[in-house]
Design a protein around this nucleic acid. Structure first.
Length: 570
RNA sequence: CGGGGCGUAGCGCAGCUUGGUAGCGCGCUUGCUUUGGGAGCAAGAUGUCGCAGGUUCAAAUCCUGCCGCCCCGACCA
């Protein structure tokens, strides 16, 4: 490709509305332009990178035995009503009506469509297992799009769906994808980690997220400093502390204290002269409309996902005032566990608390010296809090550490959530009808590209890993108006292009400095500089973008070096 | 949806308080010079001042409504 003919508008200044470095560089390098909130056009340079990533994905998916299909973006509401997600998916699902007033949506994911396809076409165990995937545009009407293509509304995604006869087969399908994802992200040159994760609105029993490690990542990742346990913060388990023997003789008498207008943990501590570790926080949640009290030590935070998963409910939210009054007979701020009319869940942080402080279920009063068992009962003790740095690892004696990550892929064991709701069944060997076991597997293509930039850049611009670089080499004659330089550079360009090297020929009538800066900005791994000084010795310079290393080589040596460099990096 | 901010040339911004000729830098066009890390000189083009109302002799500027975008929060594959 000749630079002079390429639609490649680079920007010198940092765009003011771009927060993260990948967004800034994608704009500056002429990869993307915004059409409207969370919706982007990929320009030639950006789209070349997208296609490279897609190609790597295709190769690894095919290698893992998956087959590529292409499903519609527009989907009928009936399918979503069948799976139950028409109700549950919420506002992220973009819904509309066609001219016949039929309800439709733009696919944010394709479990319904693929399950509809498979249930119609697959009838027997002989046709299983199957893994079908596509690379396609998804639409999710994000509440707040941000960070460029990192969290946008319309984006390219590879989504795969596996169908198996039993759990054992499904586990194998899952493992194949888990391994394929490692291969894909490794080939994309990313530093990443697979972590255990919550299944969210996709549903299912088990999942891993593939996290690219980056300080600007939106997700908090927890990992053990001793074993290989790693999880998303919202999923991160905490080891159950040992329950110490309690001597009931140490229990002090339950005492009511007048605490007018003292509501928050901080106010209670200040008023009574105690630490948050001595106070029990009582939160009332509405779980599918029923009140549930969650108790936790005053200095800890409740992890609502853990509560939701423990209760196995569909909707969990903080209770409204009327529900709190009904359960506690006291307003927010004075709620406690003694005499509460609700199911009582307690975090493990309460296991060894004695003589603690909590709301009295009476306005403007708290109680002191509350003790579990004597004063109230706990229905279930569980791990319900948000993990913190240095918490005990759930798998070994190690401690948890925190990092930030960007979720570029997610693999799920779905079980029968969709196959049961939508009756995707097959006949087994004995002619019995069985429900298929499903898995689903996603990769955000644009997000993978952005994540790569987050990890691979410097003050001058992007530094592409070779496998996903839009071009491997850029040839820069320092002055295109010097016939000798133009000729040598042009011949080298033709020769490399003939050999199948992705080469960009910067034949623009620009000053050398402009070209060097653009080459650095768009991040091409190798730059060949053709200038008068070296050419007098019959040589050109090859500069490695990543290391800054410069080699003076003859034309033949340069071609050999380039070929070797690319081969090694791929 | 709550809080905050912004909207003036392709990009980045000033002008608005105190109403009166729309400006600066970069980019763009032309010419000459220059040519190894974002050149110099000269000449030039480019605006529904986000949109719609209102006040006024007069609105980028004041008032009202709307739209769009960004940030924080809530929410979330």
């Amino acid at each position: 490709m000749r630079y002079s003919e390429m639609f490649l508008p680079t920007i010198r200044e940092i765009p003011s509305d771009a927060e993260v470095v990948s967004h800034q560089l994608m704009l500056r390098a002429g990869m993307i332009r915004k059409l409207t909130a969370g919706i982007y056009t990929y320009l030639p340079l950006g789209y070349r990178v997208i296609r490279k990533v897609e190609q790597i994905i295709r190769e690894e998916m095919n290698r893992a035995g998956a087959q590529e299909i292409f499903m519609p973006a527009v989907q009928p509401a009936e399918l979503w009503q069948e799976s139950g997600r028409w109700e549950h998916y919420g506002k992220e699902l973009l819904r509309f009506r066609d001219r016949h007033d039929r309800e439709c949506c733009l696919g944010p994911t394709h479990e319904e469509v693929v399950t509809e396809l498979v249930r119609n076409e697959i009838k027997t165990y002989r046709q299983l297992p199957r893994n079908l995937y596509q690379i396609q545009t998804k639409f999710r009407d994000e509440i707040r799009p941000r960070f460029g293509v990192m969290r946008c509304r319309e984006f390219g995604m590879k989504d795969a769906y596996s169908f198996d006869v039993d759990q054992e087969g499904a586990d194998i399908s899952y493992k194949k994808m888990y391994d394929a994802y490692h291969a894909i992200f490794r080939r994309c040159g990313l530093r990443f980690r697979a972590v255990e994760a919550d299944t969210g609105s996709i549903g299912g029993n088990f999942s891993h997220e593939f996290m690219v490690m980056a300080d600007t990542g939106e997700d908090a990742v927890v990992f053990c400093n001793r074993c290989d346990y790693a999880a998303n913060l919202e999923k991160a388990e905490i080891a159950r502390p040992e329950k110490l023997a309690v001597d009931e003789k140490t229990f002090l008498p339950l005492t009511e204290v007048h605490t007018p207008n003292v509501r928050t943990i901080e106010e209670v501590c200040a008023f009574l002269g105690v630490t948050p570790q001595a106070v029990v926080k009582t939160l009332i949640f509405s779980a599918d409309g029923k009140p549930v009290a969650v108790l936790i030590r005053g200095d800890e935070e409740v992890n609502e996902i853990k509560v939701k998963n423990l209760l196995k409910c569909n909707e969990l939210e903080m209770a409204m005032d009327d529900m709190i009054m009904a359960a506690a007979r006291a307003p927010r701020g004075f709620v406690g566990a003694v005499g509460i009319k609700a199911k009582v869940l307690a975090d493990y942080s309460l296991l060894n608390m004695v003589n603690c402080v909590m709301g009295a279920n009476k306005e403007d009063y708290h109680v002191k010296n509350v003790n579990i068992g004597r004063d109230f009962k706990v229905d279930v003790f569980a791990d319900l809090r948000v993990a913190r740095e240095s918490d005990p690892c759930p798998r070994c004696q190690g401690e948890l550490r925190f990092a930030r990550g960007i979720e570029v892929g997610h693999v799920f064991k779905l079980g029968t959530k969709y196959s049961e709701a939508m009756k995707a069944v097959y006949l087994d060997k004995s002619g019995q009808e069985q429900t298929m076991i499903m898995g689903c597997y996603g990769i955000g293509v644009g997000r993978t590209v952005a994540a790569s930039i987050e990890q691979n850049n410097d003050e001058n611009g992007i530094i592409w890993p070779v496998p996903i670089a839009p071009f491997h080499v850029i040839i820069t004659p320092v002055n295109i108006n010097e016939p000798r330089l133009a000729e040598v550079a042009g011949k080298l360009y033709e020769s490399l292009a003939d050999k199948g090297v992705d080469v960009l020929f910067d034949d623009r009538d620009e000053r050398a400095g402009v070209k060097f800066n653009d080459a650095d900005l768009i991040g091409i791994p190798l730059r060949v500089t053709v200038g008068p000084k070296r050419l007098a010795e019959g040589k050109v310079e090859v500069k490695i973008r990543k290391t800054g290393e410069v080699k003076a080589l003859s034309l033949d040596e340069a071609e050999a070096f380039i070929a070797g460099f690319i081969r090694e990096a791929l």
